[in-house]
Amino acid sequence: MGTAELNNTKKELVGWILSLTDESILSLLSSVKLSSEGKSIDWWEELTESDRGNILSGIRDYQQGETMKSNEFWNCLTKG
């Protein structure tokens, strides 16, 4: 990509970012920026204590073989 093309792309991106209202996209872009600067935060640290507990509980269930097949899950969900 040539210099003129690169500058045009930057201008287009800046304009697009300025028009964004979706917080999730802005958060994603912020994460990309921090990561490119070597300042990314470990996603685990950003989770709530409850979320961490739920993830660890799911891992324990998996390790203990307490799982079900996808079709079993969906059947239980749809049939109550």
Rank of each mutant, 00 (worst) to 15 (best):
A4I: 09
A4V: 11
E5I: 04
L6V: 13
N7I: 14
N7C: 07
N7Q: 13
N7Y: 08
N8K: 11
N8V: 08
N8E: 15
T9L: 05
T9H: 00
T9Y: 02
K10A: 14
K10T: 15
K10V: 15
K11Q: 14
K11A: 15
K11P: 00
E12D: 08
L13R: 05
L13T: 08
L13G: 10
L13K: 08
G15H: 10
G15L: 09
G15I: 03
G15S: 14
W16Q: 13
W16A: 15
W16L: 15
W16E: 14
W16I: 10
L18G: 15
L18T: 11
S19D: 15
S19E: 15
L20A: 07
T21D: 12
T21E: 14
D22G: 00
E23A: 12
E23H: 07
S24A: 14
I25Q: 06
L26R: 09
L26D: 02
S27L: 07
S27W: 00
S27G: 08
L28G: 03
L29Y: 09
L29F: 13
L29I: 13
L29P: 04
L29C: 06
S30G: 11
S30Q: 09
S31L: 05
S31M: 07
K33M: 15
S35D: 08
S35I: 06
S36L: 06
S36Q: 07
S36D: 01
S36F: 01
E37M: 05
E37V: 00
E37F: 01
G38Q: 06
G38S: 03
G38L: 05
G38N: 03
G38Y: 03
G38W: 05
K39Y: 00
K39M: 06
S40L: 03
S40R: 09
S40Q: 11
I41L: 05
I41Q: 08
D42E: 11
D42R: 08
W43P: 13
W44H: 04
E45H: 01
E46T: 15
E46C: 03
L47T: 08
L47M: 11
L47A: 06
T48G: 05
E49V: 09
E49N: 09
E49L: 05
S50P: 00
D51K: 11
D51M: 11
D51V: 10
R52G: 02
G53H: 07
N54Y: 00
N54D: 13
L56V: 14
L56F: 02
L56N: 04
L56P: 01
L56T: 12
S57K: 13
S57E: 13
I59M: 07
I59C: 10
I59T: 07
R60H: 02
R60T: 11
Y62R: 10
Y62K: 10
Q63D: 03
Q63A: 11
Q63H: 12
Q64D: 05
Q64F: 04
G65V: 02
G65A: 06
G65D: 05
